[in-house]
Design a protein around this nucleic acid. Structure first.
Lengths: 251, 251
DNA sequence: GCCGTTTCTCAGGGATTTCACAGGAAGCGA
DNA sequence: TCGCTTCCTGTGAAATCCCTGAGAAACGGC
């Protein structure tokens, strides 16, 4: 079931109408807090645990629909936790967090089912998108929602990563794609550069804030070129995307 | 009966519409968990047992449509379990898991009845494919046809392992075949290198992640040569397969 | 056991993507 | 209109990602 909330975003709900539940397991509290905030903002109910024991307790009485699990934990390693979780919650999809350099000690066979993983440092957009994908495909939320975002004549498919405007296919780089996804998931809403930076860039990004301007510029060139513009600047506030009005001068 | 679920994949169902049931018997819990996840993701209902006694209990009250059975079990050996299973579930097909070096002809005798086997370490794609074949042929799921995957003018027959593009037969090696099957079972969906590695390569593969790139390269040479390309790279995300657009430049 | 086939590692090179920097354009208030 | 601030975007360097040839090792059929 998908409903549109008053604030204009689509939310995932369980069959009984209650919000989707996500359990976050990581020993870095700054990370669990960051994630919890982002996931709550999605309208999900979140509980977090800092170690394997806490994770098992939460699994039992919180009964989450999805789990975010750091594979490196202090008391028992992530794999042990995974095993116990699987026994407690056999159906629940897991999103693994893993360090960049452990790409080689790749989580062999962990993503067996519909599971997925992201490498640290990640962007919140990425984590949220993957979680949505996992939950959607697991059917836990009975949200057989489409993977297609539509704003005016602009479409973005989260499964195939295809983007089209007015039927014409548009090639985007990975960062451009995430930025556009974030805009399109919040249509007609002003998003500040800080918000965009926090969501689309990885949490340890230390660069210049004007990358956002730069990527907005890239997107405009690809999305708005020769058409009524959909990406608008609110000076001093941020950017927003909305369907192009035919009356508007093409860009 | 075969239906296409909202997530775009075909599922097997029993004549009464309930999901197919599979019993997994192995004493290595990490393996039963791995398999359970993968099989659940197929939309099947799974129960697992760690020994012969548990297997018999599950056979009686779970009434599975297929059994995955490790021939090496702690309490009684797989053959004894098999005999008891056969008495309890005379019609049910069995997929044997066997160590690489075990006597092949003994297994050959076992699989005479239409059963099948895979050697450890296996890939999840392989186990799932074999199981699908067994179930399809047993008639439990009332699915008789449907061994043919089709994407555009590309076809892959899971029974005969024949692959054709535009009517022309294409020879693939075993690994190439499994990779293509995985792509074709998830058309128009971006699959990350990690997902591909976890699904197509055996669970204990510890090698370089760029084998995936290599095999994509092999596949392209055979599938896309001189034709509109069907295998596409999404830089920073993964690969996907989709029907070639006639307008696309041939490769 | 031998020989063709298949799998996989390694490494170079090429193409793409990301990002910093900086000059210029555009908006805004007085 | 002027001056200040904010935003836009060209340029280029560096990093990253991907492709593929060559060859070693493992496998399989006979």
């Amino acid at each position: 079931m998908t409903i549109t909330s008053p604030r204009g975003r689509t939310e995932m709900l369980r069959p009984d109408g209650s919000p989707v539940r996500v359990l976050v397991v990581d020993d870095e509290t700054s990370l669990t807090e960051l994630l919890s905030m982002a996931l709550r903002y999605e309208g999900w109910e979140v509980r977090s645990a800092a170690d394997g024991a806490g994770a098992m307790r939460s699994a039992r009485d919180f009964r989450p629909d999805a789990v975010v699990l750091d594979v490196m934990l202090p008391d028992m390693d992530g794999l042990a936790v995974l095993g116990r979780l699987r026994r407690e919650l056999p159906q629940v999809p897991v999103l693994f967090l893993t360090a960049k350099d452990s790409v080689e000690d790749r989580i062999a066979g962990l993503t067996a089912g519909g599971d997925d993983y992201v490498t640290k440092p990640f962007s919140l957009e990425e984590v949220v998108a993957r979680l949505r994908g996992l939950i959607r495909r697991s059917g836990a939320a009975a949200v057989r929602s489409e993977s297609l975002l539509v704003v005016g004549d602009l479409t973005l498919d989260e499964d195939s990563h295809d983007v089209t405007r007015d039927g014409q296919s548009i090639h985007l780089t990975a960062t451009e794609f995430e930025l556009l996804r974030f805009l399109m998931r919040n249509p007609r809403r002003v998003l500040s550069k800080a918000q965009i930076l926090d969501r689309v860039w990885s949490y340890d990004f230390g660069g210049q804030a004007n990358v956002v301007e730069l990527y907005i510029s890239y997107l405009r060139r690809k999305i708005d070129a020769g058409r009524p513009p959909m990406i608008h600047t609110r000076r001093g506030a941020g950017y927003l995307i909305k369907p192009g009005e035919p009356g508007d001068a093409p860009r």
